[in-house]
Design a binder for these strands. Sequence first.
DNA 1: CGATTGCTTGATACCTCTCAACCCAGGTGG
DNA 2: CCACCTGGGTTGAGAGGTATCAAGCAATCG
Lengths: 238, 238
Amino acid sequence: MASTFRRLPHIAAEDEMGPSDTARYGDAERSGPAGPQGAYGPRTPASVLHLAANEELFGEQAPVDGFFKVVTGVVRTCRALSLGRRQIDAFHVPGDLFGFEMGDRRMLSAEAACAATVICYKYHPHKAVAANDEDMAQQVFAHALRNLARAQEHAVLLGRRTAIEKVAAFLVDWAANFPASETVLLAMTRQDIADYLGLTVETVSRTLAELQRGAFIELNTAREIALTNPTGLRSLAS
Amino acid sequence: MASTFRRLPHIAAEDEMGPSDTARYGDAERSGPAGPQGAYGPRTPASVLHLAANEELFGEQAPVDGFFKVVTGVVRTCRALSLGRRQIDAFHVPGDLFGFEMGDRRMLSAEAACAATVICYKYHPHKAVAANDEDMAQQVFAHALRNLARAQEHAVLLGRRTAIEKVAAFLVDWAANFPASETVLLAMTRQDIADYLGLTVETVSRTLAELQRGAFIELNTAREIALTNPTGLRSLAS
DNA sequence: CGATTGCTTGATACCTCTCAACCCAGGTGG
DNA sequence: CCACCTGGGTTGAGAGGTATCAAGCAATCG
């Protein structure tokens, strides 16, 4: 099922910073001043990684050895708390850059929500901006700002919204990955959704059932949902 | 009371990017290639603004005309929702940079939580990175990353914590503004705290009372709180 | 001194969590 | 092929935490 998702064209590889750019940043690193590229391990400056579902990309407290770009699949960044509580920070889809950190230790862990491939750019983000590679600095900065805007939006969702509003907003957001399609495919489990929205699995399940009763959505399978009333859904997300 | 807060030395002007830097960025802008400095209004490239308590610095949807640095006082960035609900994104203290945006419209509004002075840097953040002013680019990027980390931390707080944990964590965080002091001064109202933590005023008030009953804090006045058991408070914040 | 704003406290309602049982699909092995 | 097992999902009953509504108090300000 995860692999089904992975193969969907609209959720697969993007263009803006594709393989050519990959090579480009790799070159920039190699031709630049003596950087930290060898300091963290055997990976090449921009290497491709294949992740199985639920495979960990990096853990909390891991040393920061660069940032990442999703090529296919979905990666979740999250934070583990005491007593098995978990907060998912974001789901990263193809084209997204993630893994920016201020310090030299990860504050979040990253795992594949479903089978995924990512590119690892072995720059410390600060170095990226300092690297005199203006194009790269621009892109990194733009994506950092985008992640910031997302995190702020996420905080609003978590702080001031009811379960229905949260789930509706999540579906509306996620549906953006499926333009011109009425049905969306969820790449994540109910538990993932719950941990993203600050709810429990049960509440997510119940809320989806309620949205179905209200004719906003149709649960074709657990992972495939038709948005039968996207406008109404959007207004629920208020 | 707000002015009391404003005059506290440890919450007043900082150093890293003081008046000299202010002038510096102003010069950089003036001596650089024809920038957008005149495109947004009559302010100088880096001007100082004095704000009364609750005065609005910019509103949601306002055009983005630069970013800001807090010199004295506290600025809150927030988001208004339907039905009078409000989510405060962050409280910015002296030294903080805020107001970075991806697009050309503000996603958050900014108001002075108490009397405050800020410096307005009339760069669009993207331009700042592109401006060939490496030092500035570094600082802007570092602060953007810091705001990102904060927003992520905030999301954890909002999503997976109880009222006690939220309030305790807030007090611990805020106490960082008062090093080597047992008492902290709140620059914001209970309503502000509630809107920051995703609670109601009543719950904040009750929770503070409960923390006092548990001998974690002492409410000297409504705005002045002694942390009588900071270690315990920290463990509550888990 | 009255008016306003912010803060506290109480009683009650309601939403979400917790605990529990059950269902379903997929995979495995006899 | 079928029994079994497992992980993910759904549904129900009850408990608990926080919101809501309401009243009263305290400090500030004109």
